[in-house]
Simulated assay, not measured.
Amino acid sequence: MTHIDDLPVRDELRGKSPYGAPQLDVPVHLNTNENPYPLPEPLVERITERVREAARGLNRYPDRDAVELRTELAAYLRRTAGDLPLTVANVWAANGSNEVIQQLLQTFGGPGRTAIGFEPSYSMHNLIARGTSTGWISGPRNEDFTIDADAAARAITERRPDVVFITTPNNPTGTAVDAATVVRLYDAAQAARPSLVVVDEAYVEFSHHPSLLPLLAGRPNLVVSRTMSKAFGAAGLRLGYLAADPAVVDAVQLVRLPYHLSAVTQATALAALEHTDTLLGYVERLKTERDRLVTELRAMGFEVTESDANFVQFGVFEDAHRAWRTILDQGVLVRDNGVPGRLRVTAGTPSENDAFLDAVRKLTKEQSA
């Protein structure tokens, strides 16, 4: 049987494994940061209406530039982030925030160029960098998983990356980055090369802190990326987007594939945006449940990282994988994503969170026995 390494693949792909979280047949899945609430029936009906309308024209290519969708995304950002002067020219959309990141690295990274991220952080930044032949630099974090602005700025000054990733709230830790730190790192990046700075706000709707979108003003090399997978409960839709200076939007179109967003995807996303208020109501429920998880885990004696996302990192375990296995044996799947001594749990429905907390209580009893 032929193995991948027997093929003439690029050297940097040899011996690597594809990204993915294990999906096991258990009652409670809290490992992939999905929104646990199904889309409300009125939205399902509206999606059906819009998709039916789009289906009548599937013999034609979709709107290559997704103008209506980008216009509505800009309106959403204006309404939820302080009435910013954002228009369709400032917004770009793609198949999930991962494709947005890929397009940015294809445009501003690539062979002979480098990107830096402050790890542990979203592993796809590193993986997409590798896939685009962009060199990867692992930047420093503090022991509490926050970013040390001085150390990070020094790393940028010394290594002079072409792309800088700042994830806030950070995945997998849940920690947020304040505006002053982002400005400090942006200024360091512009002095060093200048470089593109990408603020990944995939979980910002769950945050205690406001979006960093206002920082775009006067910073043409700053990008804020978002997704509809989390707050909009639309992980299956695969719709990500960015906000930036119009020149950045023009630049990524140099590498985008023709008609990359299908008519069905655009129709579904537009329907979801019509129900923003309802979907953000689910976000408020999840924020309450996240905070409950933090309180309960700390009451059990766990060290819990401050979280501004829809998940919680907790520990510290002598053997995190063994702890993961014990929780799994109780029918609850959480994430063991390689942060030493720690696991990550997604905030689910109240009953799902109850099942998780019961499983953890059993774990603590076993550990203390």
Rank of each mutant, 00 (worst) to 15 (best):
F206S: 09
I116Y: 03
A179C: 01
V334H: 02
D150I: 14
S121T: 15
A269R: 00
P40D: 04
L24A: 08
R226L: 12
G139W: 00
V223A: 04
L216T: 01
D5R: 07
R141L: 15
P169L: 11
F356I: 10
K16C: 11
M124Y: 09
N31K: 03
R193P: 06
A217P: 00
Q102F: 04
P111E: 10
I4N: 03
T167F: 08
L239R: 02
G139E: 00
V316N: 13
R335D: 15
A93P: 05
T265C: 05
S133I: 05
R335G: 08
S207M: 06
V255L: 13
I116A: 08
Y282G: 02
S307M: 08
L216V: 11
V28S: 05
F145T: 08
S351P: 05
A299I: 09
S351M: 00
I4F: 13
I128M: 10
G174Q: 10
R361V: 05
R226G: 01
L104T: 04
A299Q: 14
L357R: 11
Q367E: 15
P214F: 02
S225Q: 08
A272F: 12
I128G: 03
V197N: 04
V252A: 10
L328F: 07
F314S: 09
P214Y: 00
L73E: 00
R56G: 13
T227V: 11
M300L: 14
